[in-house]
Design a protein around this nucleic acid. Sequence first.
DNA 1: CGGTACCGTTAGTGAACGTTAACTACTCCC
DNA 2: GGGAGTAGTTAACGTTCACTAACGGTACCG
Lengths: 227, 227
Amino acid sequence: MSTQAPAPSRREQILKEAARLFAERGFHGVGVDEIGAAVGISGPGLYRHFPGKEAMLAELLVGISGRLLTGGKRRTAEGEGAGRAPAEVLDSLVEGHIDFALDDRPLIILHDRELDRLRDTDRKLVRSLQRQYVELWVEVVRKVYPRLAEAEARACVHAVFGLLNSTPHLGRPGALPGRAATAALLHRLALGAFEGAHSDGARGDGSRSDGARGDGIHGVDGSGQGR
Amino acid sequence: MSTQAPAPSRREQILKEAARLFAERGFHGVGVDEIGAAVGISGPGLYRHFPGKEAMLAELLVGISGRLLTGGKRRTAEGEGAGRAPAEVLDSLVEGHIDFALDDRPLIILHDRELDRLRDTDRKLVRSLQRQYVELWVEVVRKVYPRLAEAEARACVHAVFGLLNSTPHLGRPGALPGRAATAALLHRLALGAFEGAHSDGARGDGSRSDGARGDGIHGVDGSGQGR
DNA sequence: CGGTACCGTTAGTGAACGTTAACTACTCCC
DNA sequence: GGGAGTAGTTAACGTTCACTAACGGTACCG
């Protein structure tokens, strides 16, 4: 154990606790005193590490958006470099996003909830990163499902993000068996959603027995542990 | 036409604007003066209509949760009464939720974002309504997809809610062609997600997604009636 | 020892906010 | 006309909050 986190470094400690608190009670709902208390120091001691409360949020949001984008770029680059089918790349993107959603729940919450509390410059940066990440997905999705128009594909991507980011909402009760099972379920849900979007909406009045599964391009061995 | 909205009645006006502002900037991010200004009166004039700022949020959240639940109950009752197949009932639930998400965007945002700003008693009530609504879906989903364990079905429902509630995120740019097209797309996405969840994940990675349900403790204690 | 940089403390400041108080204008009804 | 109720105003109060000021301790380094 003990991978390589030798010094949580106070600064990272603060960021982690701030993320948790912001996610729980909202940016405006948390005072600096509470953040300080969460890391053992009190109140304005935080100002030795950050120029202000908002700077913490900004660093969190830029950090997460950047990491999502970086991971997405890496996955698509690897996929294309290895000549893998688009469906496999999409599979990899889904897997990466799920890992993120499951491992960094508080950040995922902040990511689409507290963006508007940032100053213009920071917000623009985060939005730019987010947009790039979305476009990355859109490109891949349109390769896998060419029948989707661009706007449709973008809407699908947003919707699937909403689906994947729903993990925080189901953490409360006994919830799912384990992480792996949850990840697998989310994976199936996400891919199923894309398939559903791609299927022509010519389902009569809801009889929807379906199952025809159109040209299911991806017979991919789903989720197959690329790591 | 002209149902019966002859007088927006100031109170409803306030609620509507408050919902918009809360959704845009968060409960703590909006001052009562702004809410007042949005309806033409200023500041404490609101206190002629509501006992406090939080009461507005409470009424909004209870209202939306109640309407969702009522609509869901109506749809399942109608469906079962008419002897329709579970899949059709699910179809109807999806349609109802989409209507809601598209027509009351701000409320949908508040619904899962500002719940924790409520006093204990209100929050419990809202959570109870939400839980009943979820269980309504879970029941139907399990009839349509019997292979899903209860916990899985619940997770799927939460995930699909996340998917359907993603509409607010895609309103900014050119977005989709029109309301009908967006609704249809969301519908396909949601049904596709359920289909995907139902498909056996045994695609080769061997990780058993479907548990043997050893720990049968998933006791939903009913608990209906918060009040 | 003296200096310096780091990290933390407590006390305080100014602004913002939710809420209350006191007062005014309008309408309805006898 | 004269209450009574409704809907609004401005002014003020008390609290909370992000942030600053002034100060202290500790470790490293000469």
